[in-house]
């Protein structure tokens, strides 16, 4: 390969500088755009009348698309101008400079990605929905309509004896005619809404389990480190001391692990209790789902 070392050195220097400046400028654009879009999205979320907030979601998707276009732009240049730059591998000095350039640019790109991630989360946080209010609407509606309907055949009063979330047959107590009762759209969403709401109401319990999971990981690492130390320790007195320490660490890890499992079970039970409470019509089915989720969780714990 024919090459001019001095020219390559200055070319790489130039590329590195230009890349850093390039990402600086992209970051400014990103910040400007994202900061301007956050209040707009919050406003759209709050004012979207449609229950599915379609307009808001389309806008959010487009904003995220723009944010990602910045990442793609930086990545394409990183790949083309930096990663695929050709240096004569036998030239140690150039090789070193190439690796430095690559590391510097890669690091700058990673910082950009972190900023993008930060804004992605901010953008996602503009979404909010009041599940409690939606549930309350269903409860209020039920109170309002439960004695309102009349038999289509004889005009006798019909009682809606509970909140139905699927269309159902209600027999007239006077003439025995089967009337078909169709719940409102809101009431039909009860099962699905119930799960989201139950999860929201018990989120703090799930968080407690996750938090303990972190402690469990720390305990596991400590145990693992001691096992390594033991394996390489030659001195028998030191080995005895390490063995005792390891036994403690194992005990601590097991305790922490059991606590994580206990907390998760606690969360799952509370979540399903809430869900059953909101939609008792499917309690038996929920319980089988509970069993399955618990089994999945315990299986995942077995594997690590």
């Amino acid at each position: 390969m024919n090459y001019n070392p001095a020219a390559m050195r200055s070319e790489m220097q130039d590329t590195q500088q230009r890349f850093v400046t390039f990402v600086d400028k992209l970051e400014i654009k990103l910040k400007e755009f994202a900061e301007a879009s956050l209040p707009e999205l919050t406003e759209m979320n709050d004012n979207d009348e449609d229950a599915y907030k379609q307009t808001y979601h389309r806008m959010k998707s487009a904003v995220l698309g723009q944010v990602d276009s910045i990442r793609k732009k930086a990545y394409d240049v990183l790949e083309e101008k930096v990663m695929l730059y050709q240096v004569p591998w036998e030239d140690a000095a150039l090789r070193q400079q190439f690796m430095d350039m690559r590391n510097t640019c890669q690091e700058r790109y990673t910082q950009l990605e972190d900023l993008i991630q930060y804004y992605r989360e901010k953008i996602e946080e503009t979404f909010s929905e009041d599940l409690e209010a939606k549930y309350q609407y269903i409860l209020d509606e039920y109170e309002r309509i439960k004695d309102k309907f009349l038999c289509t055949q004889c005009g006798g009063g019909l009682t809606i004896d509970k909140i139905y979330f699927t269309t159902t047959y209600i027999a007239c107590p006077f003439c025995q005619t089967q009337n078909t009762f169709e719940p409102s759209s809101q009431a039909k969403s009860l099962e699905h809404l119930g799960r989201s709401l139950a999860e929201k109401r018990t989120a703090h319990l799930l968080k407690a389990s996750h938090h303990n999971g972190q402690l469990e990981e720390d305990a596991f690492r400590k145990k693992h480190r001691l096992e390594m130390d033991m394996a390489f320790e030659q001195n028998s007195r030191e080995k005895t001391r390490l063995a005792a320490e390891l036994a403690n660490a194992v005990q601590h890890w097991e305790n922490t692990r059991n606590e994580t499992i206990r907390l998760y079970k606690n969360y799952l039970r509370a979540m399903f209790d809430e869900w059953n409470n909101i939609n008792p019509g499917l309690t038996a089915e929920h319980e089988r789902f509970h069993e399955r989720m618990l089994q999945d969780y315990l299986d995942s714990k077995k594997n690590n």
Partner: peptide
Amino acid sequence: QKMYGGEQEDKSAGMKA
């Protein structure tokens, strides 16, 4: 933009036979 399937309208509860 219009939404796929059209806007979903909320329906209130009803009784028929």
